[in-house]
Design a protein around this nucleic acid. Sequence first.
DNA 1: GTTGGCACTCTAGAGGTTGGAGTGCTATCT
DNA 2: AGATAGCACTCCAACCTCTAGAGTGCCAAC
Lengths: 342, 342
Amino acid sequence: MTSDRRLQVLGAIVQDYVRSREPVGSRNLVDRHNLGVSPATIRNDMAALEDEGYIAQPHTSAGRIPTDKGYRMFVDQISEVKPLSGPERRAITELLGGAVDLDELLERTVRLLAHLTQQVAVVQYPSLRRSALQHVELVPTTPRRLMVVIITSNGRVAQRIVESTQDLDEVLLAELRARINAEVAGLGAIKARQRLGLVAEAFPPLDRPLITAIVQTIDETLSEDVEERIVMAGTANLARSDLDFPRTIGPVLEALEEQMVLLRLLTEMVDDTPDQPLAVRIGWETHHENLAETAVIASGYGGQGPQAVGQLGVLGPTRMDYPTTMASVRAVARYLSRFMNG
Amino acid sequence: MTSDRRLQVLGAIVQDYVRSREPVGSRNLVDRHNLGVSPATIRNDMAALEDEGYIAQPHTSAGRIPTDKGYRMFVDQISEVKPLSGPERRAITELLGGAVDLDELLERTVRLLAHLTQQVAVVQYPSLRRSALQHVELVPTTPRRLMVVIITSNGRVAQRIVESTQDLDEVLLAELRARINAEVAGLGAIKARQRLGLVAEAFPPLDRPLITAIVQTIDETLSEDVEERIVMAGTANLARSDLDFPRTIGPVLEALEEQMVLLRLLTEMVDDTPDQPLAVRIGWETHHENLAETAVIASGYGGQGPQAVGQLGVLGPTRMDYPTTMASVRAVARYLSRFMNG
DNA sequence: GTTGGCACTCTAGAGGTTGGAGTGCTATCT
DNA sequence: AGATAGCACTCCAACCTCTAGAGTGCCAAC
């Protein structure tokens, strides 16, 4: 990639292809974008771009379409992400501000994102591992069964059942509850787990088994992957783009059902580029066969880079409007961060 | 519908069409099912069936396909639902038995159902309105903010935030918590709501505003539709059948995103036929344009008929294997009931 | 490095044709 | 009266063939 104009040509091809969904030829290109040169010149550039692997032709004597590598170059070229319009921002503020609890906030966020981008949107619940604890509650539900409720400062609530071998003592529970909360309230999960180990020592040996069980349950809950959850919206948008890539919708839906795959992908993505606010994976870059023709745009929220408490993003065909979609993802991530406590 | 053989013919048409996905003609029919009569005779029966609206032809000189009315007749004809095989039952028991909390139980259930039927599966969370309360917890999260956590006997946990105008008094909260639980624990939501009104009276007027707010929040949570939730799985199965009804997948996905629509449909269905264990809606019977070519099979779980605590079901093309699917839905509903406490 | 010209390639779409599956009807048989 | 064989008719789906048009690559000229 040397010439400056070639970049321009690549960008034009991407834009036109995204618009028209059809291979774009040299004549059309000079007509729509005033490049100031003749089709023949463009053809030379195109040949060069094809040699370098940025574009390809479906068949001889058809126009060119961008390759994954071409999209990648295009995306990397995007420097400034354009902000949303005033009314859009106001609408978002109003929508997200009206949410009454975390579930609703995330539900509204994911719908908003799907609506803005016209793609499939995904939002991960705040990871317990990276959240700060607000409160731990011990609720006896039967004489020998206890529900441990963990509440984070960003509003997430997790529950676990603990079975006891002996009848539960209300006084002991109250003391334990106070102790645990004094120890861990306000702390991040990692520090909290360290502190939890000390709690048992303050109690008589007779009570240790129960306390250890409880502490261990909390510890597991704070560390395990099982607690990771995601919400999704906009799958109907897949069917819209179905018209052009009909064979792909099945695999994509399959991938969406594999929540673990999605979660891993999202975290990987943002971890790989900790300094960038937005992470983009295009086609094979997802390393997932079912997503070979899909692009993913993701961002952390509720904290900068590695401190992000969760991820959100959008999946769509590689042939998507990257600038606009990236703008939406970034904006929604910011608004979600703002509206989430802690 | 008079002749006995005509019913047989209708059934044969339904079966063949479900298998082959192609209009079925008279010759093929007599070949595959040994009806003991000639094609010409069948043609007469088919003409009659068409007059009565049970079957139709896509175009003149094509075979017949069942109409919604035809499927309906076929389904109503199914008397005994065949049980699952031994290994299947064992696998289900093992799978559902391994769930550690309600979220996981429902998640596993919906995946199981999707897998068994190869369709889209839907499971509604136990409705708070029809669940028995187990415990209400009041957790102060900031000096003036309170989280009300409601736990039902079937393991559902709902939370709500209550803001107070004055600093919260720990002693008062303890008393209130004890009082509320003494009043409502073990009761169904309806009775609990009645009892809740009495709680405030036992406290000094000064504390009434806060208590009223709390009680009202609980009351709302127990009554509101907003708390209804569903989980879904198997949307990828839509793409499989996509090959034959490609235009329909979009609308269906849209309908699936409208969770309210689904919820209403499920409840309506089971309410309409309170005595039947299974409810079936075929095509237009759903009264929903997007589901015009979709059939829904639903069942309540966790209680007989109107006492069911929630619904579960399956959506698929009207051209589906009703007997098998119905068997799966019924079986899964039973197993879920069994594995859910309360 | 750019451009015009030109021969070449390939696809998508428009007719045109045909085989086969299916129907409805009528006359006949039981 | 119901069942059947025969027959003429219909219509789709599949297969050809053909062509127009868009696009390319390359070469010679600017």
